[in-house]
Design a binder for these strands. Sequence first.
DNA 1: ACCTGAACACCGTTCAAGT
DNA 2: ACCTGAACACCGTTCAAGT
Lengths: 201, 201
Amino acid sequence: MAVALRIMREEGLERVTMRRLAAELDTGPASLYVYVQNTAELHGAILDELLADLDLPRPDPGSWREQLIELMAGYTRLLIAWPSLARSVLALRPSGPHYVRLIDAVLGLLHAGGVPVGQAAWGVDMLLQLGTATAAEQGTRGEAVDADGEHQLLVQELREVSEQEFPHIAGARDDLFSGTGEQRFTWALRVLIAGIQAVPK
Amino acid sequence: MAVALRIMREEGLERVTMRRLAAELDTGPASLYVYVQNTAELHGAILDELLADLDLPRPDPGSWREQLIELMAGYTRLLIAWPSLARSVLALRPSGPHYVRLIDAVLGLLHAGGVPVGQAAWGVDMLLQLGTATAAEQGTRGEAVDADGEHQLLVQELREVSEQEFPHIAGARDDLFSGTGEQRFTWALRVLIAGIQAVPK
DNA sequence: ACCTGAACACCGTTCAAGT
DNA sequence: ACCTGAACACCGTTCAAGT
């Protein structure tokens, strides 16, 4: 496990492959299938290892919202450092003890905020999905230039769109690209929290 | 392009590779790099092709919310049929004419609902991200069994968690697993729409 | 009983060399 | 000038055969 984390830190998740890990451990790739069912499970184990470093707050009814925003920001920051791990995680529906701990903490904060338990239970999924997806959208270390190129492509396309054909894009042009990633993410969290509080099941 | 779609429909996105596509076109893989910069761009082109089939509503101020929910459900349904395409798309920040058309339609509906343009502009990203991420979380055709296995793992873990260690999970146990995917997704859309309306930037 | 070498069936991308 | 065969550098997973 420690070896897998080292490879990820040094060369990126892309290099944390069964073959590469096996080579690092001086054995054949077949040997790893004794400990792990497939590559997805290997990546899941890496996530849980990373989540061990996440500090969970002791819920305080007076500032539960800020605590929740900070906790989600922390989770997301952690994954933004490894976008392709975020991509794996999204397909994975992670399990693992530290992930469970995180779910409990988010539920605890929503409880402290007086959010009805049914809404909180469905809301946790949305909050974690927002964080994971936001990280997954970031370009990978390796692909950074490409992903940016792709994004620039959309930006350019939206800027050049004709007012006749797409009036609403034209009318929102400035707002579409405004704000930093951080500002947008914080707003998104507030949107989610407000909605989770307000909308009954 | 038509060939790529056929391969996807017959064998899944996993088989829409540069080499496979080249073989299907009776040439070497190098030839494709004349038309497309890399595999990600190929997948992006496939998405835009699929989006051509999405019906966009003419906004009606009386039922904009239901129209928006139906539009987002349509987008998501389309991607749920190809979860690994959704995964590619999340990393891609898609461009392409049909994607632009979709953005304009969502903005139009939010406008019809009287949502301030700044909130609408940032909100579109959240709505599309919700759809894409929800589809990406679905198991792939090929991985279906595995992904389900993973998910069952978390479900089991959450069910068996001790009341002392994780009181909030224990207290929300029934709600955590309640509802169909459809019900949860519709609720999530309403949460997002309510939040986008309510939270100023 | 446990482990793994070697094989099967693939990948993306580049570039020198051909037409 | 344009196209592409062949090569480089990898993959995940399985299973027969060894210890």
